[in-house]
């Protein structure tokens, strides 16, 4: 399974990407993966096992996550 995050705007997705990269997490904004429901064109792909850490860091930076998606890779 791979975790993806979506946000209410592209700007927030890139801000989350910047914040997590700066914290040493190998994330990337990617095209919406197959199987993702909703209308977001972009998603932030997390490395395995990083969901909780990412959530914590984004909450601390006050970057709200719209939705968490767990998709089979």
């Amino acid at each position: 399974m791979t975790d993806y995050l979506t946000f209410s705007s592209n700007s927030l997705a890139f801000r989350a990407e910047q914040a997590l990269l700066a914290a040493g997490m190998a994330v990337a904004v990617v095209p919406r993966p197959p199987g993702m429901v909703g209308r977001c064109a972009l998603a932030l792909k997390l490395p395995p096992g990083c969901l909780e850490g990412a959530q914590r860091l984004l909450a601390a930076r006050r970057i709200p996550i719209l939705k968490i998606h767990a998709l089979t890779a």
Binding site: N10, S11, F14, R15, E17, Q18, V29, V30, P31, R32, A41, L42
Partner: peptide, 22 residues
Amino acid sequence: SPGRGGHRQAIEAGRAVFRCRA
């Protein structure tokens, strides 16, 4: 075009816009 579509070039455009915004 930044913010239009989800292909990699559009994402790079969006990232460039975000860098400036930040």
